[in-house]
Design a protein around this nucleic acid. Sequence first.
DNA 1: CTAATCACCTGAAGGC
DNA 2: TGCCTTCAGGTGATTA
Length: 268
Amino acid sequence: MPELPEVEVIVRELREKIPGEELSDIQIYWKKTFVSDGYPLPVFNTIHAVNRRGKFIIIRLNQLFLIIHLRMTGKLIVSDTVPVDRKHLQVQFLFKSGKALLFYDPRKFGRIYLTPDPEEFFSNLGVDAIDPQFSKHDFTRMLSRKKGSIKPFLLDQHHLAGLGNIYVDESLFRARIHPETSIRALSVHESSQLYQAIRKTLNGAIAHMGTTLADYRTPDGNSGRHQNFLKVYDREHETCFRCKSVIVKKRVGGRGTHFCPGCQPLKK
DNA sequence: CTAATCACCTGAAGGC
DNA sequence: TGCCTTCAGGTGATTA
């Protein structure tokens, strides 16, 4: 479910709520969710900071870091009390203050990793898609070394980290590029448009607090609003706001892909 | 290297 | 109402 914008909104909210909290207990209800890698459970540690890289949430403790990936249906909730709703609760962190950080995940794909070394943990992860250090030139250079279709490339977190199925489709629409366009066929101008489109799309979604299609909620339990601003994703058979063509959905790289055949013609 | 498929899980939605 | 199939915001492993 959550892509970079949703994770960013979650991180901002967590940052308001949990730094300074001291862990008093950790309960793991679904073993595979919590990957301790042999390190002791960080009970009695303090939460020092909350950050993000791509779709990962990074929580700094005393010596170790909790690194969380929500995958499809993971949800973090900050509660003032021990949980009332325990359905799909996979991991529970209790604090000395009485508050709790709860990890819910119906599909159980999400993971919480424990590591002393985030740099090492992220050694194969691409650059964050809205990292200010990541330039248009870096992007075109990255593209020049690759072939294949543009959409699978954008989804691959080893290159750019943070885009998922919704925002790839939205970014390609904004840049007027067909998702099956071969990377080698992209002009310098198109690459540049795509770079801008990705940033505008992600930052716009953050401003709307993310996209809630079904499960996504912030740690306060709030929905996002960006679902009301989607241009192609989840709009199959509807009319393009820009050219009035009918939005198409087809499989590209194994993923349901939405685009406007009028605005995004395939040039190959 | 790229592409396709499966695996991991559950729930919602659509067809009959 | 119920059964069956398909699909879902993700990603890693395996196999052509």
